[in-house]
Design a binder for these strands. Structure first.
Lengths: 230, 230
DNA sequence: CGGTAGATTTCGAAC
DNA sequence: GTTCGAAGTCTACCG
């Protein structure tokens, strides 16, 4: 890993063309040849970059490049295009071997939401509701949860972290497909998510799909409580 | 902007929980308080981060934190959660004021595709096809292109760089809406994109929507050729 | 300001 | 290996 703070301009050519005028920025050169150009703001996304695998070559400045000390040409190994960094002056330059990173462990995504809801069907949906199965396969993909309501009627549940129109469309397709089978002829849908966009809710309710807000903290707490009981 | 190379472990708590075991990494602290944790690989996405606006506080290590020199607590100003960086040792530490970045200028592909297709209707769709209009307005948004086939029948075209299921749904809604008008009663659809996902193609064809792969290079070449002729 | 659609998306899992 | 959906997505656009 090499970190350089430099006065530079950057040109990218590839899927699109982009240009960064001259300014002081941070250049991150990773071991795989990738280069990231960061400014003092934005977010975690760099202003410009080249994805690995790629190769960095230092080439001579053109005659037209007045004041340019050196030019870095970053070339992707498996695609076309290039990233060209023109260095007008280097403020700082450090290099350090970082070794291999042990990597990130995550907890609390959509899969977990689905798992918790599956475990807590009677608690969350109400007494008399039962789980039929998770990841029920259909030709156009698996339905997250299939449950029975207290009257024994089938209900398909689509679980999302954030519920948008896409999710409603997805559930609608499942309902349409399942509805063709005799045993699911009167199947209903529940759209369950931590947050549901207003327009998604409108669309869902217009189609007779019930919306359900999931409280992840509470569901996880319930999970822990049960862990302690048994 | 402050850049630190340090032996550290990281814990994130917020939308999810995540943990990074102890290792040597690059810590980027931006002027807006945001912090990025990078390793020597991956891509431009950091292993972990806190999005601005946020605040960094150096707090005393816990008694349980054996060997920890200092702890950085990064707290978002407009949401819950925190990013906690435990520093076991600092390898390098540089700080530099970068000023305000002039920002990136892009030269895009996206809108260009639609423009090129509009210009080259007979070339790409075939002799006898004619352009009616671009960005044809409907209550749910503009249809990219409206054209007539050689028999004078109307066809709606949705242009995407990458064609996914969403695009097919979008075109389907347009077709359904336009089909209610007498003059568009028998309107058909063409789903045009540089790449079309297999499931999107299946869905489209199931609905009687034709799929068309666009060759951006060839279309741009054609455009240049015409430029030279006139 | 909220919602939606696109991204040089990146990332991971399933097939 | 390919394909597809999710993301702590981020970001611009539009009402």
């Amino acid at each position: 890993m090499r970190l350089v703070i430099a006065d530079c301009s950057v040109d990218y050519s590839g899927r699109l063309d982009a240009h960064l005028p001259r300014a002081t920025r941070v250049l991150m050169l990773k071991a795989d040849g990738s280069v990231l150009v960061h400014s003092d703001g934005g977010s975690y996304k760099p202003l410009n970059w080249m994805s690995p695998p790629c190769r960095v070559e230092v080439i001579e400045p053109d005659e037209s490049d007045a004041g340019v000390q050196e030019v870095w040409q970053v070339i992707p190994l498996k695609s076309d295009g290039e990233l060209r960094v023109r260095i007008y002056g280097i403020v700082a330059d450090i290099e350090q071997d970082l070794g291999v990173d042990p990597g990130l462990t995550k907890d609390g995504v959509e899969a977990h939401l689905q798992e918790l809801l599956a475990q807590q069907v009677p608690t969350i949906l109400g007494t008399g509701w039962t789980l039929l199965r998770r990841e029920h396969p259909t030709p156009i993909g698996p339905v997250d949860l299939l449950v029975y309501d207290p009257e024994g009627k089938p209900v398909a549940i689509e679980v999302k972290r954030r519920g948008g129109i896409d999710g409603v469309e997805q559930l609608t397709r499942y309902l349409e497909l399942l509805g063709r089978e005799e045993r699911y002829r009167e199947i209903r849908g529940i759209f369950a998510a931590q947050e549901i966009a207003k327009q998604a809710r409108t669309l869902a309710e217009d189609r007779g799909i019930e919306c359900l807000i999931l409280d992840y903290q509470a569901m996880r707490g319930m999970d822990n409580a049960e862990d302690r009981l048994f």
